[in-house]
Structure formats: structure tokens, C-alpha cells
Design a protein around this nucleic acid. Structure first.
Length: 425
RNA sequence: GUGGAGGUAGCUCAGCUGGUAGAGCUCCAGGUUGUGGCCCUGGCGGUCGCGGGUUCGAAUCCCGUCCUUCACCCCA
């Protein structure tokens, strides 16, 4: 064990970046509130069975990406790999079906998946997400997509592509999957080994393949949009219509097959051309069978998750507008250190001013240098030998203006300075 | 799990075909500004990722391993 290091696929958010993160989350909170969503916080880990049943035994997520462990009581627990199943669990557990439907919830939480890290992908990553549970109305689908689009807009992210698709439901999807399997069965020779395997396991996944030869074959494959039942077709048309009405430009993409089993009907994804291989910024869909699957009564739902690391990537590096403290105290006489300490404390507690002082035993020159580097508005020079012992010199570090102030009057001086500063435009 | 690239001071990097490690920035101090920003000087700071091998001698070549990174898979 030499240099300590964050675990593979994890990272430290250092102060400069944490401020940007706070801004993203704060913006989301405001946008989500406008749509009537309220925040929910669920545990970082859940019973493993929740994800196995909810997300689906056949998905990559539960087959090879979960951080699963047993606690000392022998329970099998799993670090949350996605946000929807836990929220549905909470919905059922707390009887939220008694609330006015749909129940609208949002979250900001870390997700854990054991994957090989790469650009925009981590083993611990953070998602902002929202779920609207209890209504099958296509307006809810459109609303939640609009909400996510607005979040991106408020954050200044442009040029995102919105892809939508419908996965059908229990009525029409099985028949379509069979039809697709038949089609693929007849074209096996043209498919890559992986796609040949998928033909039996999960034919829908072949749409994800990026190999040219496979894409060519899939281009001729039957598309689910042409095989939806009447209800699903009407729902899908309504969603796309509403999205168009509010100025979004949804592109129907029959390849959009998301990797979680619970999706029904609407699926959607926002992607960016500036992200590298992992281009998805956020996505989600409807999951009308999920609540029942995890033990509730049949309840429809729709939601999304969006990765904040990817949001940061598309937003690019933004200069942190961190401003310096209001004042930095410089002590010219070691015997006055204690006096300076109490003065600083007084300004902080009485006026809530951001005030700093030297905590590293620097020389007076070093302290003033530090005051400058910290970006402080003012330096308060205490203990200058040619001044009254009870007087400090307050210097504006921007323009050099100086004012001599009695130590006892410093708090009043700063209070007054603050008032005029706030009164000014 | 598979493949490509890379791992030298806190940061960004140099170090050619092997001869016992350098720069800039940062940090600390001194000088000059009656007391900061510029400039000058000095100082702190490296088991050259780790382990093995070849060699008189390896940061430099070979093997392994760990980590980082990009891509596949899949997803946020």
C-alpha cells in the first residue's frame, strides 16, 4: 500500500468543481419544482432481490454490474445501480397510491455499477432523475420529457438530440419480438457472433449493434412502431404530438432499445455529439409493469435519469466565479494574534462576513501576499508600528484606498460598508 | 471480461540510440516596493507506479503486475 488512491472508477469532486455541481443540482431543484415534483431520498443500498426482479435477471446490469454483498445478518444487499426500482419500492411501501395520482418525485443520488471506466462512465456516478407514478396518460410522458429538456436548457446545454421510441406493451411486444426473431433467424449468416447469440436471448438488443453489416440487416428488420397494438399506437402518437406542440423535435428511432427490462411503451433519450462514445446524457421511459413486478398493485409509471458527470462534460469547463473573502486580516505584531483572532470571530458571527486570517505562521509580508492571492476585497492591517495600537488600517485591495479604523469600531465599519455596497446598484 | 495508449517532483512536462534526474508553475523565505500584486535570489520537494530480468551500470531495454486513459460490451 503506497499512495492512497480513490477506488477504480470513482473520483473526488474538488471544491472548484463541487461548486459547479451544486449549481446543476440547484437548477434542477427549481425546474423540477415548477413541474410539481418533490424530492425523495432512498437508501444507497437495497435488498438485492429488488433489482433482480425489477431491473430484470437478463439485463447486463444485474448479471454483471451490481455491487452485491452480504451484511453481518446474512442479508444480500446491493448498492443502488439505478434509481427507478427503489422509488417504486418506496411508493409501494409507503402506500403512496392513496395520494393524488400521479405522484411526482425527483432525486439526486449516486449510482454504482461495476463496469470498466471510460470517458463519461464511472463505477460511482451521480444521477438526477424523476418519476411520475400512477398515471398512464400520455401527457405525463410528454411532461416529464419536457421537464428534462427544460433542465438542459436552463443549464445552457444546446444541440441535444431527442430520440423517442415505443417498446409496446404486454399485448403487442411479445408478438413483435417473435416476428423479429424469425427475421433474424433467416439472416444469421450476415450477423456478427454476438448478434447471433442475441437472436435467441433478447432480439431487441441487436438494434444496439454498431457493426455496419449488422446495422444493414437491422435496417431491413420489422420495426416495432409498425407492430404496436391500437392502444400503444395511440399513446405513442399522442406523446409525439404533444412534444411537437411544445416545440420539441422528437426523432422516432426504432433502434432506441434501452437496456432495462421494465420499459413499456415510451422510451426516450437525449444524446450529444460532443461526448465521445458514451453519448447519452439522459434518458428514460414508461414502466407500466414495474410496480406490480416488485409486489404492488398494477400501477403505471414513467421517469428518467440523467448523468451529472455527462452534463458537466457537455457543459464544458466553466470558470469558477469564486470570489474572495470580504476581508483578510494581516497581523504585524505577534503579540496581537489573539486580538486578531477574536476580531475575526466577531465579524463572522455578528455580520456573517467571510473573513480570513493567517493560520500558517506567515510573516506579515506573507500574510499580505496571501490576502492578495485569496482575492479578498480588503486587507485589515493590525499592529502597524506607526499607528495607534488600538487602530487598524483597512485597505481596499482593488484600488489601494485606505481608512484607519479603531479596532473596537471595526464591526460597525464593516456593517456600514456592507449597507452602502448593497444599496448601490 | 477484451483491445489500443500511457505511468518521472503538488501541477504541466523534458530526459536522444542505457552511465547513478531536470525545467516551468505552485509553495516557503530573503531582497526591492514605507505594507500585496511585477521583478531578482535562495530553499522545500522525486524509492523515475510496483516486482523481477538483461547489464559493470536502467528512468531509459525485456517480462509480469497495478493504476490511469480511450474504445468494445452496456449504460447516465
Amino acid at each position: 500500500m503506497s499512495e492512497p488512491q480513490a477506488p477504480k472508477g470513482t473520483y473526488d469532486l474538488l471544491p472548484d468543481d463541487a461548486e459547479g455541481r451544486d449549481l446543476v443540482v440547484a437548477t434542477a431543484a427549481v425546474v423540477f419544482a415548477a413541474y410539481g415534483y418533490r424530492r425523495i431520498v432512498t437508501p444507497e443500498f437495497e435488498d438485492t432481490a429488488l433489482f433482480e426482479r425489477g431491473v430484470g435477471e437478463a439485463t447486463d446490469m444485474v448479471r454483471k454490474e451490481m455491487y452485491t454483498f452480504s451484511d453481518k445478518g446474512g442479508r444480500s444487499l446491493t448498492l443502488r445501480p439505478e434509481g427507478t426500482a427503489p422509488i417504486c419500492r418506496a411508493y409501494v411501501e409507503h402506500g403512496m397510491h392513496k395520494l393524488p395520482q400521479p405522484v411526482k418525485l425527483w432525486y439526486y443520488a449516486p449510482m454504482f455499477r461495476y463496469e470498466r471506466p471510460q470517458a463519461g462512465r464511472y463505477r460511482e456516478h451521480f444521477q438526477l432523475g424523476a418519476e411520475a407514478i400512477g398515471s398512464a396518460d400520455p401527457q405525463v410522458d410528454a411532461e416529464i420529457i419536457a421537464m428534462l429538456a427544460q433542465l438542459y436548457e436552463e443549464l445552457g446545454i444546446g444541440e441535444l438530440r431527442l430520440a423517442v421510441n415505443s417498446m409496446g406493451d404486454q399485448v403487442c411486444r411479445p408478438a413483435y419480438v417473435e416476428r423479429l426473431r424469425d427475421f433474424l433467424g433467416g439472416r444469421q449468416a450476415e450477423l456478427c457472433p454476438e448478434c447471433r447469440e442475441r437472436t435467441q436471448l433478447n432480439p431487441l438488443r441487436t438494434f444496439d449493434c454498431k457493426k455496419e453489416t449488422c446495422r444493414a440487416v437491422l435496417g431491413e428488420a420489422p420495426q416495432i412502431v409498425d407492430h404496436l397494438c391500437a392502444d400503444c399506437r395511440a399513446h405513442f402518437e399522442r406523446v409525439t404530438l404533444l412534444l411537437g406542440d411544445i416545440g420539441l423535435d422528437p426523432q422516432v428511432d426504432f433502434r432506441l432499445v434501452r437496456g432495462l427490462d421494465y420499459y413499456t411503451r415510451t422510451t426516450f433519450e437525449f444524446s450529444s455529439a460532443h461526448l465521445g462514445a458514451q453519448s447519452g446524457v439522459g434518458g428514460g421511459g414508461r414502466y407500466d409493469g414495474l410496480i406490480e413486478l416488485i409486489g404492488g398493485s398494477p400501477t403505471p409509471g414513467v421517469g428518467f435519469g440523467t448523468g451529472v458527470e455527462r452534463i458537466s462534460l457537455v457543459m464544458g469547463v466553466r470558470e469558477s466565479a469564486k470570489s474572495g473573502p470580504d476581508a483578510y486580516f494581516v497581523c504585524y505584531d505577534e503579540r496581537l494574534r489573539a486580538r486578531v483572532f477574536t476580531l475575526v470571530q466577531q465579524l463572522r458571527s455578528e455580520l456573517l462576513l467571510e473573513v480570513d486570517l493567517d493560520l500558517a505562521g506567515r510573516t506579515p509580508k506573507g500574510q499580505l501576499k496571501q490576502a492578495d492571492r485569496s482575492g479578498a476585497l480588503r486587507a485589515v492591517l493590525v499592529g502597524l508600528e506607526w499607528l495607534d495600537p488600538g487602530t487598524a488600517r483597512v485597505r481596499d485591495l482593488r484600488n489601494g484606498d485606505e481608512d484607519d479604523v479603531a479596532l473596537d469600531a471595526l464591526a460597525d465599519w464593516f456593517a456600514a460598508a456592507n449597507d452602502t455596497a448593497e444599496g448601490a446598484p
